[in-house]
Design a protein around this nucleic acid. Structure first.
Lengths: 217, 217
DNA sequence: TAGATTGTTAATCGATTAACAATC
DNA sequence: TAGATTGTTAATCGATTAACAATC
């Protein structure tokens, strides 16, 4: 077994493959080729084959990939074949939204606790959870074996919450706050700050200072 | 002036530079070097200099970059020096959250209209906006010169909404739904689907099938 | 057997980093 | 002047794509 370093780009594509495969499964498609997948995803088929080959030989030459078998394999690679508890800090609008997505995030990942620092939020209910004071964080992380923290607090509080999460022992953080977090240890941080996406989108718009000026004939 | 193609990676870093620069401005820092910026952002200083050099000579040798001048320049590059109207479709929890971020998204970008397909939502108010029926989309896009659409509807409805947005004449779409959208023309689509980030985060966790098993001494 | 498609190696492409002359 | 830092070219690194033998 070659011990190659697998790049982030590859790992980031796996959930996308999984998504399309699940759609295919729902349409009762049995087998899919890298060609088919490439078409659906605007990706080069060779890249898809190479990505998958990092983790094993999942396809059959001349045939393609068995959809449900490949789903099983990718779920295993992503460790989604075991329950994974998630805690969310920040019971604002965004926090609410993510908790509701909960049903959507099948895949054994589940938000099991919500925290907030503000007395007005504490004790309110989101779905079946009661919002807890941030002081409970460490205890609840231990009790419920929470391994991932989602930060949905304002930017100014994000670093503090991140520090608390690390201290509480989570292994990964998904940060929605528009702030650059620094943490020690090997806690992994992923960013989900949409402002980057939104602002960079503006770059690609036509220079539209004078949108009213029609091209004159 | 060299007409070089500027890569997406470069454009995507500009909002991040802008963010840090704004923080520096708030702390009344006048001048910053690529070294300083690199430290703050975990980026190579040479990369930052190269990124900026694509757009002009903004620094001074031996000195660094003037913070407020560079902010001005980047804002111009990203076309954030002119008002930019945004429409949001999907008045659910996530839509609400994004509308509230509105104050945060300074930079001349503003959500100016909210749409939904469901009668129960239509007519309700979010901040100072009244939720409109999706049928109004084209007319309102024209009237308010909306150039970007944000999609916060469920995945199953996302493609339909995207088609309507394109038909209404928006130039860019920010999609929060976990769906792969296909559109014609040169409408640009950016993804803000956090499920990819969350699922790929799981990959990097320690193999924790048996978290209870302590290392035995 | 002929056609299709994988897994993998080699070739290409592009992005990041190093190095340094120019200059504040 | 000496030290610092840019803008830019050249070197390196890594990721994507092409090509093809193996084989279903």
């Amino acid at each position: 077994m070659k011990q190659v370093k697998i790049s982030e780009a590859v790992v980031r594509r796996l959930p996308i493959y999984l998504h399309v495969l699940n759609e295919l499964l729902r349409s009762e498609v049995q087998t899919v080729s890298s060609q088919d997948l490439g078409q659906k995803l605007d990706l080069n088929p060779a890249q898809i084959r190479k990505d998958l080959a990092y983790f094993g030989e999942f396809g059959r030459k001349g045939i393609g990939y068995d959809v449900s078998y490949l789903i099983e394999k990718i779920r295993h690679i992503l460790k989604l074949d075991q329950p994974l508890n998630v805690g969310l800090i920040g019971a604002g609008n965004l926090g609410h939204a993510l908790c509701n997505y909960n049903t959507y995030i099948k895949d054994n990942m589940k938000i099991v606790a919500v925290f907030d620092a503000h007395p007005s939020k504490i004790g309110t209910r989101i779905n079946s959870m009661t919002v807890q004071p941030i002081e409970n964080l460490k205890r609840t992380v231990d009790e419920l074996q929470i391994r991932i923290g989602i930060i949905t607090v304002p930017a100014a509080e994000a670093q503090n919450v991140a520090d608390r999460l690390v201290q509480a022992g989570v292994e990964g953080i998904l940060n929605f706050a528009p702030a650059i977090l620094k943490v020690q240890g090997d806690v992994r941080i992923h960013h989900a700050d949409f402002t980057t996406e939104l602002l960079s989108l503006a770059y690609y718009l036509e220079n539209g200072a004078d949108r009213n000026e029609e091209t004159v004939d």
